[in-house]
């Protein structure tokens, strides 16, 4: 066996994984698309990034990537976070595909924790990195039991959790990884995206694929599929809202990151979706922060 270092990405197959592995993952993806929200077990491989760094999403992306794809990678909504940079570089090296920071121009977007603010269009694919695919996991630790609960649609326990939230806090206190029901059948974990993003999943024009590498599960939401956030009739689902607009672009309807500016605790709020924010600024929108700086 060769122990030479392989610094040159060209020595690997296109997009790193061998074709047999890609085929295996594509089969799982097809099944996932056919049964929306159902978690399909797949024989996840060891990838050159650690588990927890997005190996599930990376394997899904690697299996469906084509040479003429345009790839966008975001983490926390931003293209320039360290892990997004690292994953984008990986695919540049092992697949040589074009990359972009523009949501609009991407054919494939791999994401961790956010859905872009701009509505996705037909033909685009959004690949989510998922740490714990099982929405029932923290209510029931056993895989054998949770699979049964899904099979039999025994979802009462999920509402018990929401009931507890309301009883204790007066409202549902789940802010991210907020459970949804897909196509009126399976309860699904949308990955740790903020619940702010849940409505974007519903009847989305793009194909949404979810990969959990460590737990070895793939699931999917096909285009234009119903995705409903769980709630009670008298306590309907609500998304987060901010008191202030984005300091940079003035957007009032986007997820904002809080940035602590100095030791006195001065804060500013800016769009977590960096592409959305810069696009708006280029279009001439300004936020209160920009005006103050001028």
């Amino acid at each position: 066996m060769s122990t030479e270092t392989q610094d040159d990405g060209l020595e690997y197959n296109f997009a790193y994984l061998d074709e047999q592995t890609k085929r295996m993952i594509r089969r799982a993806l097809l099944k996932a698309v056919a049964v929306p929200g159902y978690q399909v077990p797949f024989a996840g491989r060891e990838m050159p990034m650690p588990y927890g760094w997005g190996t599930g999403g990376i394997q899904v992306t690697a299996s469906i990537l084509e040479p003429d794809d345009v790839l966008k990678v975001i983490d926390q909504g931003a293209d320039d976070t360290t892990n997004a940079v690292s994953i984008r570089k990986f695919f540049q090296r092992v697949a040589g595909v074009a990359t972009t920071e523009k949501t609009e121009g991407a054919t494939l977007i791999q994401t961790r924790h956010r859905i872009p603010e701009m509505p996705l269009h037909e033909g685009q694919i959004l690949v989510y990195q998922v740490p714990i695919p099982e929405p029932l996991r923290f209510l029931e630790p056993r895989e054998t039991e949770t699979r049964k609960m899904h099979a039999l649609e025994e979802y009462g326990l999920m509402h018990v959790k929401l009931y507890e939230d309301i009883a204790r806090h007066g409202h549902i206190a789940t802010t991210y990884a907020y459970p949804v029901k897909v196509n009126d059948r399976y309860i699904m974990d949308p990955s740790p995206t903020p619940k702010f993003d849940n409505p974007k999943m519903n009847r989305c024009a793009a194909l949404q694929l979810f990969g959990a590498g460590r737990e070895k599960r793939i699931y999917a939401v096909p285009p234009y599929t119903d995705v409903v956030s769980l709630d009670f009739e008298d306590h309907p689902f609500e998304i987060q809202a901010w008191d202030n607009p984005c300091s940079l672009c003035g957007e009032t309807n986007s997820f904002l990151d809080e940035v602590i500016m100095d030791d006195q605790g001065t804060r500013m709020f800016v769009c977590s979706d960096t592409d959305h924010c810069t696009t708006r600024q280029q279009q001439g929108y300004q936020g209160p922060g920009q005006e103050a700086a001028e």
Partner: peptide, 25 residues
């Protein structure tokens, strides 16, 4: 241990968005 270390250490990755959600709440 590869799975375990990955998931434990992934806590080092940014969780700004989730934390922001909790902070607001």
């Amino acid at each position: 241990n590869v799975q375990a270390t990955g998931f434990v250490e992934h806590l080092k990755l940014p969780h700004y968005v989730d934390f922001q959600s909790e902070l607001n709440l």
